[in-house]
Simulated assay, not measured.
Amino acid sequence: MTLFEEWRDLIENQTEDTFPEFWKEYSEAETKIYSDILDRPEEKMTGTLGELAEKYQVRPVIFMGFLDGVDSSLKKSNDFENFDENSQVEVEIEPEKLFYNMLAADAEYLYGLPQWETILGEEKMAQIAKEYKRSKTIVKGKKIGRNEPCPCGSGKKYKHCCGKTASRN
């Protein structure tokens, strides 16, 4: 079983009883790793998965979870699905994308880290937060009247074309 499969298995098999302890372990590890990365955002984190897990004093499967979570915020994606403890890891973040993704994950304990003010500044953080909120806003399209031409381009009135099927649903 790869570490990625072990990570997925660990997540999927949490119960109400085991989740609090798992979450405490994971979120503390994640906070520690991100704090270190954000202290030096321009540096690339490299090493084997096992070495990096040891550096941050976390289980390799927990470090695999961090890698799974950060992957969409990296300059270059890794093939984490086949990783084991000897696999080479390269983590180089895109700060703006990472901040946005932390907002999307509702991870206040991560997007609230003090290093963000130094890296992005309050104005940029507010702009990214605004972009994130805007992406969640649903905008309804213009309602088509029954007697208007059908938007499919058939030349028929909406009520005699696509509106006929829509009224049946």
Rank of each mutant, 00 (worst) to 15 (best):
P20I: 05
G65W: 00
D84G: 12
G145K: 10
A129H: 02
E30Y: 15
S135L: 05
Y26K: 04
K55M: 15
H160R: 15
E5C: 04
M64P: 06
C162P: 05
E54Q: 14
Q115K: 13
D17G: 02
E51H: 09
H160K: 15
T48M: 00
Y100A: 08
L10Y: 11
K130C: 05
I119L: 12
N86C: 12
P60C: 10
K136N: 14
C162F: 03
L10V: 10
G47V: 09
D68Y: 14
R59D: 11
A29Q: 13
S135H: 05
N169S: 08
L103D: 03
V58T: 11
N86R: 15
C161E: 02
L74K: 05
S135W: 07
D39S: 07
F19W: 15
V139R: 04
E25N: 14
T48C: 00
P151R: 03
V61W: 03
F83Q: 07
S73R: 06
K164N: 15
S35G: 09
M102W: 07
L52W: 05
K32C: 05
F66G: 03
P151K: 04
E16H: 06
P151S: 01
S73Y: 05
A53H: 05
I37D: 00
E92S: 09
K157S: 02
K97Q: 13
I93L: 05
F83R: 08
W116Y: 11
G145R: 11
T137H: 06
G141S: 03
K75I: 13
K156G: 00
E21D: 12
G112T: 05
Y158S: 06
T2E: 06
